[in-house]
Amino acid sequence: MSPAVRFTNVSRRFGAVRAVDGVSLDIAPGEFFAMLGPSGSGKTTCLRLIAGFEQPDDGHIDIFGETVDGVPPYKRNVNTVFQDYALFPHLTVGENVAYGLMIKGVDRSEREKQAKDALAMVKLAGYEQRRTAQLSGGQRQRVALARALVNGPKVLLLDEPLGALDLKLREQMQDELKTLQRDLGITFVFVTHDQGEALSMADRVAIFNDGKIVQIGSPSDVYERPTSRFVADFVGSSNVLPPQFATSHGGAHWWTSLRPEKISVAGPATLVPAVHAHADGEIKSVSYKGSVTRLTVATDELRLIAESPIGAAKFKQGDRVRLIWPKSAMIAMEGDA
């Protein structure tokens, strides 16, 4: 079966800027795929290339095995949930949702019925007659979702779909989007700069930097085994150990990632178990995060960040401590050695 979306060596330039630079990528049918990266990394341009709002300067894009080179957005079987939703202010909620069906020439009673069903699916039954200006941010998001899904797209594109919502609502929508995607079986491609969102929702994540994909894999892959300093730093926070430090602590001679939660904090003279590495240092800052406490510790060579669920609370700034971590927690990263 051909992939839902295939990028073959796609580039898109804006003047001298290479917004997307030689990206190749396969998205499987029915996959929940995240494009993650800082702003200006090219992830949104990739989404716009799939939607058809941009055309590639080089390379090819296929959607379900058919080339979309030169195909305008209105002839593509994909729909987009826009970042600020782009609901039409002169239409009611119901008319907004039925817009795509109206354009296709579906007759009024049929499209009203389908719009009603789509609104019920996003838990906004009975909102047909409202004006979009009367809706809250979360409700607008749902209308935008219904407006896209009612057309039965093969691929649904979501551009920072949860960016404008507050934290509580965002967590709730994450679950709902995930459930919706599973129930409908549609390929979802969503763009975000929030690594937590990408890790918790997606089946697979592509991490973008400077117009290129720097790593692609399952959320646990990219979190547990980052292949570059950029990914280690961008996905979660990580201690990036220089090659000399890694070697002297039982690792390989590579730039190495060490997650803060893998490091346990102990008193200065604590015995180090076998297959563990350690470093001694002084606590420079303590920051309480609720579920964890984050400590910044200055060792002789560099500063390390440790996150400790319990116990760390008893240490305070200025204390001498011993940091202990399993050697297996040091992930050698290729590429930047």
Binding site: Y74, N79, D84, A86, G100, M102, R147, A148
Partner: peptide, 22 residues
């Protein structure tokens, strides 16, 4: 805003349809 026009195209409207409906 430009994204109303993009949204309309995304939902299947040709330029002419976008003009008259949006």
């Amino acid at each position: 805003p430009t994204n109303y026009i993009e949204a309309s195209a995304d939902l299947g409207a040709s330029s002419r349809q976008t003009f008259w409906t949006v």
